[in-house]
């Protein structure tokens, strides 16, 4: 298990390094003229040159990368080009919002998805048909569209939840829940459907396996077979789909945050993108990849615990 953990850790670290390197060279190498974008077409050549020197953009890309890495390893992600705030501080203030939203959404999706998937696998018939419909609808209707609908209906028209704004959980848990309920619903709908579909398929797969029949032959009750054996063997596939869905959900959160005006990474990322604020974009990318890696690592370790074969490899 220790070896397994170490291998996963090293792989994760390499992944972060590769993705941030690629991102850096794309942003700083391919983006030919960020300063012109920032200062506008009317800027004079001197203004541009001065600004480039100020931002260190006159140096070769390799050198810029080296200094970015050195700083990043010390927790310094540079300064925003637009508002001159340290990127790391801005991110620190915004990550908890997005993370809280995404984690709550994935938990809600997993609970609903697993319950629905197991029910569809067990009872088949109309539950199963219903699931198929929900899966298609959940796939076909984008989360952002669903979010606008929720915001309009439950926020604006019915007024059950705030349509805009955010309350920190440290200020009021209830307030936080009321501000994130609609965003979580918008995000969870499609994800829950996808998880349910996978859980249904793997439960049906496991139930066809010989050992389930053997367990029945030993007089083990059907509830225990489901809970202790079928679900346990279906879990690896379910965990895989949860980790894939979590990655998609982080992206979805960025759009949904914009709709509900949550002060998370979403608004930051989009503003930075339209303004060409390269250090902030870089920071957002780094921090989302870090989140993904940590979550995947956790799921891999759970995988190792429940699946004895995974450990041996």
């Amino acid at each position: 298990m220790l070896r397994y953990t170490l291998v996963k850790l090293v792989t994760a670290a390499i992944l972060v390094a590769v993705v941030s390197t690629l991102t850096f060279f794309m942003l700083y190498g391919a983006n030919s003229d960020p300063v012109t974008t920032m200062l506008g077409e009317t800027a004079t050549a001197e203004q541009i040159a001065a600004r480039e020197a100020e931002l260190g953009l006159d140096r070769p890309v390799g050198e810029q990368f080296a200094s970015w890495v050195t700083a990043a390893l010390h927790g310094d992600l540079g300064t925003s080009w637009s508002n001159r705030q340290p990127v790391a501080e801005t991110l620190a203030a915004r990550v908890p919002v997005t993370l809280g939203l995404a984690i709550l959404a994935i938990i809600v999706s997993a609970v609903i998805g697993i319950a629905l998937g197991v029910a569809a696998a067990r009872f088949r018939g109309w539950v199963d048909v219903l699931l198929q419909v929900v899966v298609i609808v959940g796939f076909a209707l984008p989360a952002f569209w669903f979010a606008t609908l929720l915001s309009t209906t439950f926020g604006l028209q019915l007024g059950w939840f705030p349509a805009l704004g955010y309350i920190k959980p440290s200020e009021s848990i209830g307030g936080w829940l009321s501000t994130v309920t609609l965003p979580v619903l918008a995000l969870a709908a499609g994800v829950a459907a996808a998880i349910a579909q996978q859980v249904r398929n793997s439960v049906i797969d496991v139930e066809r396996r010989d050992f389930v029949r053997a367990l029945t032959s030993r007089g083990i009750g059907s509830r225990r077979i489901l809970l202790a054996h079928t679900l346990r063997n279906a879990a690896p596939a379910a965990l895989t789909v949860i980790s894939v869905q979590f990655i998609g959900l982080l992206g979805g959160a960025i759009i949904v945050e914009n709709i509900f005006a949550l002060p998370g990474l979403g608004a930051l990322a989009i503003d930075a993108t339209t303004l060409g604020d390269v250090p902030v974009v870089m920071g957002v990318m780094l921090v989302t990849v870090l989140i993904v890696v940590v979550v995947n690592l956790a799921l891999d370790l759970i995988q190792g615990v429940i699946n004895p074969k995974a450990r041996v490899r």
Binding site: G248, G251, V284
Partner: peptide, 17 residues
């Protein structure tokens, strides 16, 4: 590697670049 990159964020990077 590609599968662990959140799509929308990566696309924003592409847009910025």
């Amino acid at each position: 590697v590609l599968m662990s990159i959140p799509g929308i964020v990566a696309l924003l990077v592409v847009v910025a670049a």
